[in-house]
């Protein structure tokens, strides 16, 4: 069997990446610490079709980093089937968007308002998306660049 058959087109990767984003509950979030190292944590999220909304505790390291750098790189669902998204992030206070809270509860399975500590959302608008299932897929892993899907 040709290994070529295992390499997905950009359109297939886009469709499957969007399915993973809709299906998943947690995402790895990398952010830059003030001391020049990097932080990494898994957070629950809600994908609204175009943007990824993660919930974290007010004042957490990730919250402080994202407030300062306004940029994040995130990945899901696994290292064998990876979708990596990168782009600017904006902070969304809990009371600013009731629809988002309800959508997050439905997607993540818990209500951020019921947690003992105050939470906040950060919304990533991807400008770069990578999708890769095997080393064979690495050369064409970029499926969105500068905010545009390559198969558009």
């Amino acid at each position: 069997m040709s290994t070529q058959s295992t390499i997905r087109t950009a359109s297939e990767r886009r469709a499957e990446s969007l399915e993973e984003l809709q299906r998943g509950r947690h995402v790895w979030v990398a952010s830059g610490n003030e001391n020049g190292t990097a932080h990494l944590i898994a957070l629950s999220y809600f994908w609204d079709g175009e943007r990824l909304n993660v919930a974290t505790r007010v004042g957490s390291k990730t919250a402080r980093n994202l407030e300062r750098t306004k940029w994040a790189r995130m990945s899901l669902p696994s290292t064998e089937n990876s979708v990596v998204l990168e782009g600017p992030v904006e902070r969304i206070a809990l009371d600013a968007d009731a629809g988002l809270m309800a959508a997050h509860k439905a997607a993540a399975g818990f209500d951020v308002r019921e947690l003992p500590e105050p939470y906040v959302f950060f919304r990533l608008t991807p400008v770069q998306v990578l999708a890769m299932r095997s080393p064979d897929e690495e050369p064409d892993r970029v499926i969105m660049r500068n905010g545009r899907w390559l198969d558009d």
């Binding site: 990398a30 830059g32 610490n33 990097a38 990494l40 994040a72 790189r73 290292t79």
Partner: peptide, 19 residues
């Protein structure tokens, strides 16, 4: 395990992430 997600700091204080 086989793989890890590796976070590393870019020069501009954002972070990179790769498996």
């Amino acid at each position: 395990g086989d793989d890890v997600w590796v976070a590393s700091p870019n020069g501009d204080r954002t972070a990179h992430l790769i498996a």
